[in-house]
Design a protein around this nucleic acid. Structure first.
Lengths: 254, 254
DNA sequence: CGGCCGGTTGAGTACAATCAATTCTGGTGG
DNA sequence: CCACCAGAATTGATTGTACTCAACCGGCCG
C-alpha cells in the first residue's frame, strides 16, 4: 500500500528507482548497496514531522536533503492568486530537497505523519559525492523524478477534468505496481483538496469529475480512499497512455 | 540570443547549469572540464537534423543520449485526443534522451535546424559513468531540468491565459539571463502553435492572450519573435514569481 | 446534541475551446 | 520590383466546461 514503510527498512537511507537503460519488469529496485546505506546513515539524522507540518519553505537556505522512511510529503508552490499548487507526491524511498543557488525551490509539507532521514549537504559534498557508484544511483533517481514531473505536466495539459483524474489515478496505480504493492484497487492517501491542488482544478470540480466517472461505471469507490477500476477500456482511453488516438472521439450529444 | 551556439563551442560536449548548492549570480556556468569534454568527444558523433525532423519517438530503444550544440529541440507527447503537448524547449548545452526501461519516454523533434552530439549509452556506461566528477555534473544538470519541468507544471496549473503567457515569457527571459544573453527584450524562437502546445492552450487563445497583454500595455512586440516588457510591475504580478499575494486581486466589474 | 471538517451538490458566470473567416507575412517566380 | 501564393497569425461568433459562491450533507469529536 502506498505510504508504507520502506521495503528495506532499518539499514539506513534507501532509494528505489528504475535504471533508465536497463529493461526490467517495471518494479523499482533498491539501488543503494548495503555499504552505501551504512555510510549514509553515519551522516544522517532521523527526523519526524506531524501531519500538515511544513518541513521547509521555498527560499530557505538549502542545507540538507531528505530521504523519506515513511509517510507522504508534497512539494508545493503558491500561485499568483495565492492558491497552492502541489508539485508531486513523495513516498518512502523518495528524495526531496531540490535546490538552486543554495535555496530550496519549493516549499514542502507532510500530508501524513512523516519519518525521514536528514542528510546535510555539507556531509554529502564532503565525501559521498566522490563515489561514482552512489552518484549513478542518484542519477537514476533523478531521471525517475524527472519522468514523474513530466507526466504531471502532461496531466496538467489536458483540458477535460475526467481525463485529468483518470491520469492521476493511473499514476497512482502505476506507482503501486512499481513499488510491488497490491494492484487490485487504487489507494488514494490524500484528501480531495490535495488532489485538486495536484491536478490543477478546484475541489468541487474534482468531486464532480469523480462522480461523473463513477456514474459512467468507469470506477467505483469502496471507501474514501479506495478506488477500483471497473471499465478498464474506458479508463485507458481516458488516461490516454494507450495507442491509436487516430480518430477523434465523437462528442456525446449533451 | 537563445538558440545560438554553445558559449564554449568546439571542444566537445558541453553542459551548462547552476550548482544547486552553490550561491552564484544566476548565470549558468560550463560544468565540464576540458579533459572531460575531450573524453566525451572521443565517443560522440555529431548529428544534424532539419527543422521539424523527429529525432526519435517515444518507445524507441534508448541507445543514445544527445547534447545540443545549436538549435532548439522539444520533447513532446501525444495526448488522449491526439493533440501534442510540448514538454520543454531545449537549447545549446542541454541534454536529451531521457529513458525508462531502455525506452525513450518522449518523442523529440527539432523546431529549428539542430546540430548535436550523439553519445551512445553503451560508451557512457562503459567508462565515463565511473567518473565521480563527471557524474556530479550530470546530477547538477538533472536538478536544473527538474526545476525547469516543475516550473512548467506550475505554469500549466494556472487558469488565466494571460498568466500562463506571462510566466512563459518570464521563463524565456530568465533563461536568457542565465545564459548570459541580452535581456533587453525577450526572444521567442518558436511559433505560436509551439507556444500553444507548451502552455497548454489553443493557438487562437495564445494569440488573444498576447493581444490582451499588448492592449494593457504590459508588453510590446517589435517583431514576430521579439517582445519587450513595458510594465514590469504588472508583468511580475501576472507571472507571480514575486512576493505578497496576500490580498486577492479584486475582480474588475465586468 | 451541536459544531466542525471534509466532501458533495446546485445555480449562474466567466473564460477559453471550437469552428470558421480574414488578414498578415515571408518567400518565390515572373 | 511586384504579384502571387502558402503558411502563420489574428479576429469573430458561438458553445462548453470548469470556476465561483453558496447551500447542504455526513461523519467525528467534544
Amino acid at each position: 500500500m502506498l505510504g508504507t514503510l520502506s521495503a528495506t527498512n532499518g539499514s539506513g537511507p534507501a532509494i528505489r528507482a528504475l535504471d533508465p537503460w536497463q529493461a526490467s519488469d517495471g518494479r523499482m529496485r533498491q539501488l543503494l548497496a548495503e555499504e552505501e546505506r551504512v555510510r549514509l546513515a553515519a551522516v544522517a539524522t532521523v527526523v519526524r514531522f506531524k501531519k500538515g507540518e511544513v518541513i521547509y519553505r521555498e527560499g530557505d537556505v538549502a542545507d540538507a536533503v531528505f530521504n523519506i522512511i515513511s509517510g507522504v510529503v508534497t512539494p508545493f508552490r503558491k500561485g499568483a492568486d495565492g492558491a497552492e499548487h502541489m508539485v508531486a507526491f513523495l513516498l518512502a524511498d523518495d528524495l526531496f530537497g531540490l535546490a538552486a543557488e543554495r535555496r530550496y525551490t519549493n516549499s514542502v509539507k507532510a500530508i501524513t505523519p512523516v519519518v525521514a532521514y536528514r542528510l546535510p549537504v555539507a556531509a554529502l559534498r564532503g565525501g559521498l559525492l566522490q563515489d561514482a557508484q552512489f552518484e549513478f544511483h542518484i542519477i537514476c533517481k533523478l531521471c525517475q523524478e524527472l519522468r514523474q514531473v513530466q507526466r504531471h505536466a502532461f496531466l496538467l495539459s489536458q483540458r477535460r477534468a475526467a481525463t485529468r483524474l483518470a491520469m492521476f489515478l493511473r499514476q497512482l496505480e502505476q506507482l503501486e505496481f512499481a513499488r510491488g504493492d497490491d494492484t487490485a484497487e487504487i489507494y488514494v492517501p490524500m484528501d480531495r483538496s490535495d488532489v485538486a491542488e495536484y491536478v490543477g482544478m478546484t475541489l468541487p470540480a474534482v468531486s464532480r469529475a469523480f462522480a461523473a466517472l463513477t456514474a459512467r461505471g468507469v470506477i467505483a469507490f469502496r471507501n474514501r480512499g479506495h478506488v477500483k477500476v471497473l471499465d478498464r477500456a474506458a479508463f485507458d482511453k481516458l488516461s490516454g497512455d494507450d495507442v491509436e488516438p487516430r480518430s477523434r472521439r465523437p462528442r456525446r450529444p449533451h
